[in-house]
């Protein structure tokens, strides 16, 4: 049955990829697709830093890793290189409620926050991550130092994020 499970995951991933390449993302905020045609279970996403945030001007690279039972289980998302953000672990892994099932609750998300279900998709998750870049969720922080900095000294947080953006762009 594992074989059929990855077959159905593959079918779903190909459909999502097709829709993304045909429709594009709203306002060209991101692109996403398999890194190699030979492996549909590992994708790369390029995300533009949202306007009017310290991330503006940056392009952030994230790796998406899909399980063989996708979309029953969610995928994982990791910024490579890692970015400075309250909801991103130091190793780059993204911590957001939409990538967790209700039973799997590492950071005690609010009960009402959006969870993973097969109704979600790569596009919906990345759009959530983009809005998370603009508005961090301090209730379920992943990078505690960064949460603290954001809360206590927001100008310094913004300065460091801008410095990171410049550094990643090689300026």
């Amino acid at each position: 049955m594992n074989k059929s499970s990855s077959a159905s995951a593959l079918r779903r991933l190909m459909t999502e990829y097709k829709q993304l390449t045909e429709g594009g993302s709203p306002d060209d905020m991101f692109t996403a697709g398999p890194i190699s045609e030979s492996d549909f279970f590992t994708w790369e996403a390029l995300i533009s830093g949202p306007k009017d945030t310290p991330f503006e001007g940056g392009i952030f690279v994230a790796k998406l890793t899909f399980p063989s039972d996708y979309p029953l289980s969610p995928f994982k998302m990791k910024f490579e290189p890692p970015i400075l953000h309250p909801n991103v672990y130091a190793d780059g892994n993204v911590c957001i409620s939409i990538l967790h099932t209700p039973g799997d609750d590492p950071t005690h998300y609010e009960a009402a926050s959006e969870r993973w279900s097969p109704v979600q998709s790569v596009e919906k998750v990345i759009l959530s991550v983009i809005s998370m870049l603009a508005e961090p969720n301090l209730e379920s922080g992943a990078n505690i130092d960064c949460c603290k900095l954001y809360r206590d000294n927001k100008p310094e947080y913004e300065r460091r994020v801008r410095a990171m953006v410049r550094e990643q762009l090689g300026l």
């Binding site: 209700p102 009402a112 959006e114 969870r115």
Partner: peptide
Amino acid sequence: DTGEPMGVREFCESFVEAIGR
């Protein structure tokens, strides 16, 4: 959990579609 009234969409997304609820 809270007993608060909920909208249809929000209820369905959080307590019907989500696995494990």
